[in-house]
Deep mutational scan, measured.
Amino acid sequence: ETGKELVLALYDYQEKSPREVTMKKGDILTLLNSTNKDWWKVEVNDRQGFVPAAYVKKL
């Protein structure tokens, strides 16, 4: 879809709370919100949640 910003997972991340999502290094995720410098909201496999901003980079 146009207008979607994507990020690349630089590291594996295992969710530690229900508000977070698990990702694997190399995953491409849809970026939903990056206003917080530490935690970015992403969508992966129809799930939305937060990942550490340092673990992903914008494509």
Rank of each mutant, 00 (worst) to 15 (best):
9 A>W: 02
22 T>Q: 04
56 V>G: 02
14 Q>I: 14
54 A>V: 09
24 K>A: 08
12 D>S: 08
2 T>M: 13
43 E>N: 06
56 V>A: 03
11 Y>Q: 13
54 A>G: 11
20 E>Q: 10
48 Q>E: 10
21 V>L: 15
28 I>C: 07
52 P>S: 02
11 Y>D: 08
4 K>E: 09
46 D>P: 06
43 E>H: 06
6 L>T: 08
43 E>Q: 13
3 G>C: 15
21 V>Q: 03
40 W>E: 01
42 V>T: 01
48 Q>V: 14
17 S>H: 11
12 D>L: 02
10 L>M: 09
19 R>S: 13
50 F>Q: 04
38 D>L: 14
53 A>R: 13
57 K>C: 15
58 K>L: 14
9 A>Y: 01
21 V>A: 04
17 S>G: 13
53 A>E: 03
59 L>W: 08
57 K>H: 09
40 W>M: 03
45 N>Y: 13
45 N>F: 11
55 Y>L: 15
7 V>M: 05
59 L>Q: 05
48 Q>T: 10
48 Q>N: 08
17 S>D: 11
10 L>S: 03
49 G>W: 03
52 P>T: 02
52 P>N: 02
47 R>F: 05
30 T>C: 10
41 K>P: 01
49 G>H: 02
22 T>K: 04
58 K>M: 11
27 D>T: 07
23 M>E: 00
36 N>K: 07
27 D>K: 03
26 G>R: 02
30 T>I: 15
45 N>W: 09
43 E>R: 09
58 K>W: 07
33 N>L: 08
8 L>Y: 10
35 T>K: 13
55 Y>W: 07
4 K>C: 14
19 R>G: 15
38 D>E: 12
14 Q>Y: 15
23 M>K: 01
12 D>K: 03
17 S>Q: 08
34 S>D: 15
41 K>N: 07
57 K>V: 15
28 I>Y: 06
8 L>I: 15
24 K>D: 04
25 K>N: 04
57 K>T: 13
54 A>I: 10
24 K>M: 09
31 L>W: 01
39 W>G: 00
8 L>S: 05
53 A>I: 03
1 E>V: 13
50 F>G: 01
45 N>R: 14
22 T>E: 04
3 G>P: 13
4 K>Q: 11
43 E>D: 07
13 Y>E: 00
2 T>G: 14
56 V>D: 01
3 G>E: 13
48 Q>R: 10
17 S>L: 08
1 E>D: 14
32 L>Y: 04
41 K>I: 14
